[in-house]
Design a protein around this nucleic acid. Structure first.
Length: 421
RNA sequence: GGCAGAUUGCCCGAGCGGCCAAUGGGAGCGGACUGUAAAUCCGUCGCGAAAGCUACAGUGGUUCGAACCCACUAUCUGCCA
């Protein structure tokens, strides 16, 4: 049962792999890598799937290399893009590299015989001269084969592709070669959109080093309703708590569709097959309890943000979604819950603001008129008490712990108003 | 390059001189129902408490009065070269 392929197999996490991979893994632990390009200030859900996959390898004794793409991030991967990317400045990319490196660290074990290795492909590319690149690396690539890659051919039939992005697969292949030489890395993993880039790398290592190295891709996570995984109405769900708060992050998982929850559990958690079967049964028997979603949200939020932040997110959710218990909530929990929500600060200098004005202040509605309308529709509550009067105002006594006013619009949209003394 | 037509609110799309803040559909939002779901039904959907204000590509004009008529500009689409 400590066989990584059977582990990934039952979790449905293998899209494709090189035919020689099972044989290689049968010989014992390997060193593998996955690249993370700094295309944004933070990692996101797509990256998390790969991080978790790498972590599964490490837990079973393999050595992971987390490669930050300082160089490839400057070039831009054409995979899955139907138009040329806008190049980010070097300064921006370097800043993101650092942030992403820090973000990756907590997921891996840096001790023991199979300690995780952090690397950056900027190291072996930034001072490579053009002639070396063309003679030593470029010579091994057939343009005919490069054109056949899905990521390139899709663009040739569409918006076109620059020489810069066309060269991306060469850089990624070079990474595999360098990691093979430096660390004996013999496996690259990635999302299924990376298959072309990965096989380009295994080809290069075979030509240059006469060595068989392997690739494995995981399926793209898709959702039953057809919308893109990892996005909410407000945008991408990031791993950085500054960009996506732990509360929002927790809510993202809690709101998973019943139809998707098993896939997500298999992909993003370390729960066993037996545990997942039990949760599947629970979903079927009493879907309203949403035990599977709770387990998912708990596990993934803990993995990414830690125990403490998870407890806070849960407490906040329980308080906000619970009925009428807000006054019993302690100040610390309330405080953190409210910081998660859109909030605004007001001062009560004698004038009592109306509820609709406060709704506008924390951007729960677009205009005062919309706020009054929302109240008239019976969709607004203050501290979990429904507001019935369009002209209702609040007073100092309404602020919980003398500090926060909890506004709710509809069933699950919250906002906070803090009091400036 | 020449001729013809189009441009309406988040999207599609009616309106073609006063009764137009502008029919209808979709999306969104709220309510009922529910599981912080799906489906369904109901309501709502420019700003303003209101008077009123701002809007129908832009600018200017005709008119007591324009989304609607005219001119020019911009963009898009057909047809001819």
């Amino acid at each position: 049962m400590n066989d990584i392929l059977s582990e990934l197999g039952w979790r449905d996490l293998v899209a494709q792999h090189t035919p020689e991979l099972p044989e290689e893994l049968a010989k014992g632990p390997v060193t593998l890598y996955c690249g993370f390009d700094p295309t944004a200030p933070s990692l996101h859900m797509g990256n998390l799937a790969q991080i978790v996959t790498m972590s599964r390898f490490q837990k079973l004794g393999h050595t992971p290399i987390a490669l930050v793409g300082g160089a490839t991030g400057l070039i831009g991967d054409p995979s899955g893009k139907n138009a040329e990317r806008t190049l980010n400045t070097t300064d921006t990319v370097m800043e993101w590299v650092e942030g992403i490196r820090k973000q990756l660290e907590p997921f891996f074990d840096f001790s023991g015989s199979n300690a995780c290795i952090m690397s950056n492909n900027y190291i072996w590319t930034h001072d490579m001269d053009v002639l070396t690149y063309l003679r030593d690396i470029g010579k091994h690539f057939s343009v005919n084969r490069m054109l056949d890659k899905e990521s390139v051919s899709a663009r040739l039939n569409g918006a076109g592709i620059s020489y810069t992005e066309f060269s991306y697969q060469i850089l990624q292949s070079l990474d595999f070669l360098e990691l093979y030489r430096r660390h004996g890395c013999t496996l690259q993993i990635g999302g299924s959109d990376q298959w072309g880039n990965i096989t380009a790398g295994t080809d290069l290592v075979r030509r240059v080093e006469s060595a068989q190295v392997n690739g494995l891709t995981t399926p793209l996570v898709t959702k039953a309703d057809g919308t893109k995984f990892g996005k909410t109405e407000t945008g991408t769900v990031w791993l950085d708590p500054e960009l996506t708060s732990p509360y929002e992050f927790y809510q993202f998982w809690i709101n998973a569709d019943d139809r998707d929850v098993q896939t997500l559990l298999r992909t993003f958690t370390f729960r066993t097959q037996e545990e997942l079967a039990a949760l599947e049964l629970a979903t079927a028997e009493k879907p309203q309890a949403r035990d599977a979603q709770r387990a998912l949200a708990h596990d993934v939020t803990t993995l990414v943000h830690g125990e403490h932040a998870t407890a806070q997110a849960k407490a906040a959710a329980a308080a906000l979604f619970g009925q009428g218990e807000l006054r019993e909530l302690d100040a610390t929990t309330l405080d953190s819950a409210m910081r998660e929500a859109p909030n605004a600060a007001v001062s009560l200098n004698g004038n009592a603001p109306t509820v609709s004005e406060l709704l506008v202040a924390c951007e729960l509605v677009a205009s005062n008129g919309a706020g009054r309308r929302a109240i008239a529709e019976g969709g607004v509550s203050v501290n979990n008490v429904k507001v019935t009067d369009e002209n209702a105002t609040v007073s100092i006594d309404d602020f919980l712990h003398g500090k926060w006013l909890v506004l709710r619009r509809g069933k699950r949209t919250f906002g906070g108003i803090s009091l400036i003394k």
